[in-house]
Design a protein around this nucleic acid. Structure first.
Lengths: 204, 204
DNA sequence: ATAAAACTCGACACTGTGTAGACTTCTTGC
DNA sequence: GCAAGAAGTCTACACAGTGTCGAGTTTTAT
């Protein structure tokens, strides 16, 4: 998204602009925390990053672009973190592990994730980013369900459709719980895990 | 929310202002459909309702107030519609009925409901309206779960917590599906119903 | 018929956005 | 070590949308 770096030479580690870019994103994240997206102006971001509005527009073309970059940075971290999924595990264990990892992700990045969800509709690029992320999770859930004996297929009571619904359940439940406290998040996780297990036929 | 009607006499059926108010809300709903909340300006709304911006501010203090009123109108309709719930029915039948009714609600009011959800965070009044609505649904789901034999209590695998998660699952799944098509909505409904039944222990 | 209310309008001040152009500071090839 | 150009920074401006004000017009009740 940073628009103006046509040729970045091979050894110029840490240009001044890279530091600024990071400062902008960090400031944006901080502001998001106590002002919220709407209240936060690009002037605020610039000031927080120690530059003027004009200078900020050198790096990002708009407020939306800044936030999009922030979401992209975070989401990238999510993927990184989730790549190491113990896919080949026994279903019950896989589910527990997945839920635990998700709790950690929301504890660390809840704020940005909530913002991403909120802006999915209005900022198409963020929507795409978030949908892609959701699809990864849905695929993972589908895999576990199938390994637990749920039929693969496109009917509403078969693995992919159920995985989609379960994914949205987790997203939404965590979205709300992460606004409250870490304890609520942990409880919410237990509830979601229970429903997931039941749906997979792993609890009578 | 219409701020300036200190005394409305008892028989004055259909003041001019009432008609305007309705026109404003209708226009707002229409604009929401093809422009979206952000793109829609209060000038647009006023123009659509056949008055000037200045006149609109006589009825509503801001764009947010207009949309809040629209959401309130719709949500009131939801409650109306849901009061007639066949609470005393056999669980399986109650679940099927509830899901069918929910599909109808989303078919009719999907747009406003989606907007309400999107604005829940940024507009506290809408958030409250929507949370209250959700609580009604959660209570209804809890009742069904308990009648199906799920323990009442506050633990993560007991009725209220599960009802909450199921409610968010339905909300989110319908939110996405209603953006696509009526067919998707129907399928999504089937999936949610299946998970609900399973969680209630009504499907092996 | 008249006074109060309900209602309407155009003009204004303010805030935030995004752009233009001039200026300074780094980098790099020679 | 020194030009040339890329990278970075700034002030000033034009513009769009919001919300307010005060002066008017219409409706309603008496």
């Amino acid at each position: 998204m940073p628009g103006h770096h046509p040729t970045r030479s091979r050894r110029a580690a840490e240009r001044k602009g890279d530091v600024r870019e990071r400062a902008i994103l960090d400031t944006c994240e901080a502001l998001l925390a106590h002002k919220g997206y709407d209240a936060m102006t690009v002037g605020d971001i610039a000031q927080g990053a120690g530059i003027t509005r004009g200078a900020l527009y050198f790096y990002y073309g708009s407020k939306q672009e800044v936030v999009t970059a922030l979401v992209a940075r975070t989401v990238e971290h999510l993927w990184e973190r989730s790549k190491a999924t113990a896919e080949a595990d026994e279903p019950r264990r896989a589910i527990a592990a997945a839920m635990q990892r998700t709790v950690e992700l929301w504890n660390e990045h809840g704020l940005v994730m909530r913002t991403a969800i909120d802006l999915s509709l209005t900022v198409p690029e963020i929507g795409e980013l978030w949908n892609h992320t959701a699809d990864l999770f849905i695929a993972a859930i589908t895999a576990v369900l199938e390994r637990a004996g749920i039929q693969a297929g496109t009917a509403p009571d078969q693995a992919p459709a159920m995985a989609r619904a379960l994914c949205w359940m987790i997203e939404r439940t965590f979205y709300h719980a992460s606004q409250e406290s870490r304890e609520k998040l942990q409880e919410a996780s237990a509830t979601c895990e229970h429903i997931w297990l039941t749906s997979a036929g792993l609890i009578t």
